[in-house]
């Protein structure tokens, strides 16, 4: 089974890109399954069910979605194998720009959209920098110049990745992506023992454990203060 991890900022078009790509993969008689990771709510699983592909969803709730992802990925892989999938796609939303969900030796795709602004590529950390393929969406509604500027900013941050434009509405470009993600040789039976490409964002403080009250008296553990200079300056 091939494992593909797809990430990207909220509403960048991950689901639309995956849906169109699955269409192209199915034409090659490949069995695809999807596991959707989100934080509070998602009904994307219904969209995938409509495509008649096996789907599972996981909501991280109060936990950092990245940590939730990595704590569950091995079980997800075993589920995919039990479903006899050729390709298992995981979709996770990058909620804090410091997300780092990619695994060494597992294909990583970052989806980012032209509308997010030209400084966005700079703001996104490992999720963009460490991706193998960067998919840029929503190119049909911005000007050619803005597309070129955006792509050049992506290239500055991650010149190693293959950069592609995909229209999530018409699917233009999705067939091409489908040719890049399946490789018989990329067989994965387990991710046990594999490593993340980069460490995940960390925190362990009283607020992680449910504290609501504000003020120094209630802050314990991994707490960091902003440098505001002299208050009376």
């Amino acid at each position: 089974m091939n494992l593909i991890t797809i990430s990207g900022p909220p509403s960048s078009g991950k689901t639309a890109v995956i849906v169109k790509t699955i269409g192209a993969l199915k034409q090659r008689n490949l069995k695809v399954g999807v596991v959707k990771f989100d934080c509070l709510y998602t009904d994307d699983d219904i969209i995938y069910k409509k495509l008649d592909v096996p789907v599972k969803k996981g909501l991280s709730g109060a936990l950092c979605p990245d940590h939730y992802f990595v704590s569950n990925i091995e079980e997800v892989v075993q589920w995919g194998k039990a479903q006899k999938l050729d390709i298992l796609i995981t979709e996770s939303a990058g909620l804090c720009n410091r997300c780092s969900p990619y695994i060494k030796d597992v294909k990583a795709i970052c989806v980012i959209d032209n509308l997010s602004g030209i400084n966005t590529p700079k703001k996104i950390g490992p999720m963009l920098k460490a991706a193998d393929i960067v998919v840029i969406t929503k190119g049909d509604i911005v000007s050619q110049a803005e597309r070129e500027v955006f792509a050049s900013r992506v290239r500055q941050v991650n010149p190693k990745a293959i950069t592609m434009n995909i229209n999530g509405l018409t699917g233009q470009g999705a067939f091409e992506l489908s040719t890049l993600i399946y490789d018989v040789a990329d067989k994965i039976d387990t991710v046990k023992g594999k490593e993340l490409r980069f460490s995940m964002p960390a925190a362990l403080c009283s607020y992680c454990l449910g504290e609501r009250r504000i003020g120094e008296d209630y802050q314990m553990g991994n707490v960091r203060k902003m440098d505001l200079g002299e208050i009376n300056e």
Partner: peptide, 21 residues
């Protein structure tokens, strides 16, 4: 041409396009 982000073969202009900057 397929993979180079700096040298795309086709530029597109359509009715739906807007400036967003």
């Amino acid at each position: 041409w397929r993979f180079s982000s700096g040298n795309k073969l086709v530029a597109q202009l359509s009715q739906n396009m807007n400036f967003v900057m």
